[in-house]
Design a binder for these strands. Structure first.
Length: 887
RNA sequence: GCCCGGAUGGCGGAAUUGGUAGACGCGCUGGUCUCAAACACCAGUGGCAGCAAUGCUGUGCCGGUUCGAUCCCGGCUCCGGGUACCA
C-alpha cells in the first residue's frame, strides 16, 4: 500500500476535530497534571514560518506522550495579536486592525491545524478580544493599587499603606502624592527615546546598540513625555532569588541575573568645596577611597550646573551640548577615546580630607547609580585610561601580588593599572583616624563601610541595573489604560465593574506629531464628566505588547470565564506551567516582565504559585543556506545552481560559497511550511524539524533532510500496513530486545527533550524489523504507540489498520521490560596502552581474573605484547580491557 | 572589552558525560528492478597506504592530568548569541 499522506492526514485531522480528542479534561481529581505551553505567536501577515513548528512540535510530542502516560494535559494555543504591523497597515489602507488581525489569525490557525498539533481549540485566546483585555486592564488596576513593603518583601494593597504622620497632616493632596510615590504603577514625565519613524516612544530595552529602534530600524531621539511606568526594580531581589528554584537553562538564568544586575557597595558623600552641597557616589569598592584622586559626574547630573565654576562654564556647556547630540553608542563605544572636561571645582575626599578635582565626562551615565563616580585610576581600567589622558594623579593603594619585580615596580609607581586583590598600602590618615593598611579586599570593604556609617558619611548599599519599566505607547492598537485625568489634576483608575474600556472606532490611525496617540482624535470617547460635573479626559496612551503576553498562561486555564479572571480551583490545579518552550529572544524581557506580574498577583493572593514557569526550554533558531561570491556579496537563492556539490551563479557563472544565515526575504531563502506539508506531509515536517539536531541549537534547514524522514515514514507505513508482515504468536527475541530498547530510549529522550536521538532509535528498530521481515501484532501495536507523539497521523492510521476502532491518543504508553534488555555476552574491546587492538566476546558474568586469563591467552594478545610482561591490566566489567605495557 | 554558548567525516549530527569516535539521516559510489529515468531495494562509504588481511592517523590549536581524554585542567584561535564604559 502506498503512503498516501495527504489523504491520511486530512482524515485524522478531521477525526480529532470532530471528536474533540484533545479537549482538556474537566476532572481535576487526577493528581497527575501537565501544563504544556508554547510562546504564543504574533499572527503576522506573512503566515507561519518554519521556526514556529519547531517549538510547537516539541511541545506537541511532550503533550501527546504525557496523555499516554495518564496525565491530564493542558495544551492551548492563542494569539498575541496587538502589535505594530496591523496598525501600520491600517494607516496605509484604512482597514481596521481587528480585521487584519482576524484574517491573520485564521491563516495561522489553519496552518497550525494542518500540522496535526494536539491543541484544545476550545481554550483559544486572543489578546485583542475585549473579553481578554478586560482582565489585562483589571491587572493594571491591581498594579496601580499595590505598593511594595520592603520589610516583608511583598506587594500589598495601597489601602494597607500607612502614611507617615508628618505627611498625613498637611492635607489630602500630600497624602495622595505620598501614596502615588509608592504605587507599582505611576505616571511621570519621562525623558524617553522617541522613534520618529513609528512616532512611538521606545523603552530603553527596545533601543538597539546603534541607537536605532528594534522594530523599524529608524534612529531614535530623546523626548520628554508623560508616561506610565512600572516599578519593577522593587521586585529585583525577589526576581533574583526566584531564579535559583527554576528548571531553566543555566545560560538563560545567568542572562536574567545579569539583567537585574545586583551589586553591593556603598554610597559615599563627598563635600563640595565652596558649596553647601554633597556629591553622592555609588561604589562597589569603598575600600579604595584612598586611591580616589578625582571625581566624574554625568553631563546630565542635576548638580553639574551648580558645580561648574564661572571660568569653566563655557567649556562645560560646549561639552554638554556635544554630548547631547551623541547616541548611546557614540558615548559608550570602547574603541573611541574618552572625553571629559574639568568643572573648576573640587570635592573633599572624606578619608583624608584632600581636595580632588571634579570632572564631567559622558562615560558616566545618569541611569545607573547616582550619576557620579569617584575615580580610582590605579585600580580601575577606565579611570586609569582617563587619568593618563588628562594627566590626573594616580595613587597605588594595593600592593600587587605579582612575581615579576619590574611589573610590581610599574604598578606601585602608578604606571600600570592593577585590578586584582592585594594588601593595602598608603591607606591611613591621622586626621580621620582611619587605617586599613595590610588588610585585604573583603575586610577592607567591611572596615571602610563601617567607618562611613559611623561617621555618617555613607551607607552600605545594594544597587540594581534593572530600571523602571516604561509601560505606555502612543498607539491605537493596544489595550487602553482604564485611567482618567481630571481637570483638577487628579488621576483616577476606573472601577472594575466599568471594564472593559474598549477602543473607539477611528477614521484616522495616524498618531500626532506631538507624540499623542491616535486615541486623542476620538473626542466622544476621550471626554468624560463625573456625577459632580467635573470634566476629565481619558488616558490616550495604550499598553505595550508585553501586557497581553505577561499573563496569558493564566487565562488559558479558564478562557471563557466572564465573571472572574479565572476560576481559583482551576488555577490551583493547573499552575505552574510544567513546560514552556519558545525562542531565546525572549530570554530576558518577556520572561522577566511576566515573572514580575506573576509575583505581584501572588502577593495579592490571586495566584497560588510564586513562579509561573517551572521548566523552560529555548529552541534554537532555524537558519537557511545562503550563498555569496568570493568578495562576500550575497546572492539570492533563485540565482544559485548546484553542480557536483558546488554552487554557481546562474547568470555570471561565478563560483559561490555556501554559508548559513538567517532566513530573509532579500536572500530568497525563506522556507514556507505549507510547501513542505504539501510535498511530504505534516508528519514529515514534524519529524524533520525534530530530527535536524538538538532542540536548543541553531541549525540550517536542508530540504534534502526532509526526504530522509519522509523515506522513514514511508517504509514504516509500507511495512506495518502489509498484513503479510504482521504475524500472531511469539516474538523473535532479537526483535523483542530491539523493541524494548527503543521504548526505553524514546521515553527517556522525550522526558529530556532529545527528540533527534529518539527518532534515530525508531529508525534503527524499523531497520531491524524490515530485515527480520515479520513482527507480531503486539510488536506492531507497541511501535505504533511510541511513534504516535512524533508522527500522529501515520500512527493513527496504522493503529486503525491493526484493527482498533478508537484513537490511540489515550492508549497507555508501553512499558519496557529490563529483562529483555539483558545481555549474556559482551564484546570487550581490548586495548594496549589505550589503543583498541581487537575485540573478544565474553560472558557478562566473568570475574576480572577470568577475563584477564582469557584475554592474555588469546594469540592476538601475544602478538601485541611482543614477549613483554604487562605492567598493569585494567578491566572495567562490560566496558573495556586495557593492557599497559612499557614501551 | 566583558558574559554565555560552541568547534567531531563532503553535510546535519551521535557517543551511556573518563572506557570500542563517527549511531541515525543526507550526500556520494557500485549493484538489482526498468526500454530508460524516477521510485524502491541491496552493498560500500573519516583520511592515508595496501589486491587484501591489516597498519598508521584522526574530535579547532598547544600543553597537562590519567592505564585510558570528544569529555577534566591550563593557555590560545576561530565562530555564534547577549551586552555596551555598571563605578
Amino acid at each position: 500500500m502506498d503512503y498516501n499522506f495527504q489523504e491520511i492526514e486530512k482524515r485524522w485531522q478531521k477525526y480529532w476535530e470532530e471528536n474533540k480528542t484533545f479537549k482538556t479534561p474537566e476532572d481535576l481529581s487526577n493528581p497527575k497534571k501537565c501544563y504544556v505551553l508554547d510562546m504564543f505567536p504574533y499572527p503576522s501577515g506573512a503566515g507561519l514560518h518554519v521556526g514556529h513548528p519547531e517549538g510547537y512540535t516539541a511541545t506537541d510530542i511532550f503533550s501527546r506522550y504525557k496523555r499516554m502516560k495518564g496525565f491530564n494535559v493542558l495544551h492551548p494555543m492563542g494569539w498575541d495579536a496587538f502589535g505594530l504591523p496591523a496598525e501600520q497597515y491600517a494607516i496605509q489602507t484604512g482597514t481596521h486592525p481587528s480585521i487584519t488581525t482576524k484574517n491573520n489569525c485564521n491563516t495561522f490557525r489553519r496552518q497550525i491545524k494542518e500540522l496535526g498539533l494536539s491543541y484544545d481549540w476550545d481554550k483559544e485566546i486572543n489578546t485583542t478580544d475585549t473579553g481578554y483585555f478586560k482582565w489585562t486592564q483589571w491587572i493594571f488596576i491591581r498594579l496601580y493599587n499595590t505598593w511594595f513593603d520592603d520589610e516583608l518583601q511583598k506587594g500589598r494593597p495601597v489601602s494597607e499603606l500607612k502614611v507617615p504622620e508628618t505627611i498625613a497632616k498637611p492635607g489630602k493632596k500630600e497624602i495622595a502624592k505620598y501614596v502615588d510615590s509608592k504605587r507599582l504603577a505611576y505616571y511621570a514625565n519621562a525623558r524617553v527615546w522617541w522613534c520618529p519613524g513609528c512616532r512611538i516612544v521606545c523603552a530603553n530595552e527596545e533601543v538597539l546598540n546603534d541607537g536605532s529602534h528594534e522594530k523599524c530600524g529608524n534612529r531614535v531621539e530623546k523626548k520628554n513625555l508623560k508616561q506610565w511606568m512600572l516599578r519593577i526594580p522593587l521586585y529585583a531581589e525577589r526576581l533574583l532569588k526566584g531564579i535559583d528554584s527554576l528548571e531553566w537553562p543555566e545560560g538563560i538564568k545567568d542572562m536574567q541575573r545579569n539583567w537585574i544586575g545586583r551589586s553591593t557597595g556603598a554610597e559615599v558623600d563627598f563635600k563640595i568645596e565652596g558649596l553647601n552641597e554633597n556629591l553622592t557616589v555609588f561604589t562597589t569598592r569603598p575600600d579604595t577611597l584612598f586611591g580616589a584622586t578625582y571625581m566624574v559626574i554625568a553631563p546630565e547630573h542635576p548638580l553639574t550646573d551648580v558645580i561648574t565654576t564661572i571660568d569653566y562654564k563655557c567649556t562645560v556647556n560646549t561639552y554638554i551640548n556635544a554630548t547631547s547630540l551623541k547616541s548611546d553608542l557614540d558615548r559608550t563605544d570602547l574603541a573611541k577615546e574618552k572625553t571629559g572636561v574639568f568643572t573648576g571645582r573640587y570635592a573633599i575626599n572624606p578619608v583624608n580630607k584632600k581636595p580632588i578635582p571634579i570632572w564631567v565626562a559622558d562615560y558616566v551615565l545618569t541611569g545607573y547609580g547616582t550619576g557620579a563616580i569617584m575615580a580610582v585610576p590605579a585600580h580601575d581600567n577606565r579611570d586609569f585610561e582617563f587619568a593618563l589622558k588628562f594627566n590626573l594623579p594616580i595613587v597605588c593603594i594595593q600592593d600587587p601580588d605579582v612575581s615579576d619585580p619590574e611589573q610590581k615596580k610599574r604598578i606601585l609607581a602608578g604606571k600600570e593599572c592593577w585590578t586584582e586583590d592585594g594588601k593595602y598600602i598608603n591607606s591611613s590618615d591621622k586626621s580621620t583616624g582611619i587605617d586599613i593598611n595590610g588588610l585585604n579586599k573583603d575586610t577592607g570593604i567591611a572596615h571602610i563601610t563601617n567607618w562611613l556609617e559611623i561617621k555618617n558619611l555613607g551607607t552600605a548599599k545594594v544597587n540594581y541595573k534593572l530600571r523602571d519599566w516604561l509601560f505606555s505607547r502612543q498607539r491605537y492598537w493596544g489595550e487602553p489604560f482604564p485611567v482618567i485625568h481630571w481637570e483638577d489634576g487628579e488621576v483616577t483608575v476606573m472601577n472594575e465593574n466599568e471594564l472593559p474600556l474598549k477602543l473607539p472606532e477611528l477614521e484616522k490611525y495616524l498618531p500626532g506629531d506631538s507624540g499623542e496617540s491616535p486615541l486623542s482624535n476620538s473626542t466622544e470617547w476621550l471626554n468624560v464628566t463625573d456625577k459632580n460635573g467635573r470634566r476629565g479626559r481619558r488616558e490616550t496612551n495604550t499598553m505595550p505588547q508585553w501586557a497581553g503576553s505577561c499573563w496569558y498562561y493564566l487565562r488559558f486555564i479558564d478562557p471563557k470565564n466572564d465573571k472572574l479572571i479565572f476560576d481559583q480551583a482551576k488555577e490551583k490545579y493547573w499552575m505552574p506551567v510544567d513546560l514552556y518552550i519558545g525562542g531565546a529572544e525572549h530570554a530576558v524581557l518577556h520572561l522577566l516582565y511576566s515573572r514580575f506580574w506573576h509575583k505581584v498577583l501572588f502577593d495579592l493572593g490571586i495566584v497560588s504559585t510564586d513562579e509561573p514557569y517551572k521548566k523552560l526550554f529555548n529552541q534554537g533558531m532555524i537558519l537557511a543556506f545562503a550563498y555569496e561570491t568570493e568578495s562576500g556579496a550575497k546572492v539570492p537563492g533563485d540565482l544559485v545552481e548546484e553542480r557536483d556539490g558546488k554552487y554557481f551563479h546562474k547568470e555570471t557563472g561565478a563560483m559561490l560559497n555556501q554559508k548559513v544565515a538567517k532566513m530573509s526575504k532579500s536572500l530568497k531563502n525563506v522556507v514556507n511550511p505549507d510547501d513542505v506539508t504539501s510535498k511530504y506531509g505534516a508528519d514529515s515536517l514534524r519529524l524533520y524539524e525534530m530530527f535536524m539536531g538538538p532542540l536548543d541549537v541553531t541549525k540550517p534547514w536542508d530540504d534534502k533532510g526532509v526526504k530522509g524522514v519522509f523515506g522513514f515514514l514511508g517504509r514504516a507505513f509500507r511495512f506495518f500496513s502489509n498484513p503479510e508482515n504482521i504475524i500472531k504468536g511469539e516474538e523473535d527475541t532479537e526483535v523483542l530486545k530491539g523493541l524494548h530498547y527503543t521504548i526505553k530510549k524514546v521515553e527517556g529522550d522525550i522526558e529530556t527533550l532529545r527528540f533527534n536521538t529518539a527518532i534515530s532509535a525508531m529508525m534503527i528498530f524499523l531497520n531491524l524489523a524490515t530485515k527480520k521481515g515479520k513482527v507480531t501484532t503486539e510488536t506492531a501495536a507497541t511501535f505504533t504507540k511510541i511513534l504516535a507523539p512524533f508522527a500522529p497521523h501515520l500512527a493513527e492510521e496504522l493503529w486503525q489498520l491493526l484493527g482498533h476502532k478508537k484513537s490511540l491518543a489515550y492508549e497507555p504508553w508501553p512499558e519496557f521490560n529490563e529483562e529483555f534488555l539483558k545481555e549474556d555476552l559482551f564484546e570487550y574491546p581490548v586495548s594496549f596502552n589505550g589503543k583498541m587492538r581487537f575485540k573478544i566476546e565474553l560472558p557478562v558474568y566473568l570475574s576480572k581474573d577470568e577475563i584477564i586469563k582469557i584475554v592474555l591467552a588469546d594469540e592476538r594478545s601475544q602478538k601485541w605484547l611482543g614477549g613483554a610482561t604487562p605492567v598493569n591490566i585494567i578491566v572495567v566489567p562490560n566496558r573495556i580491557v586495557n593492557i599497559v605495557i612499557k614501551t
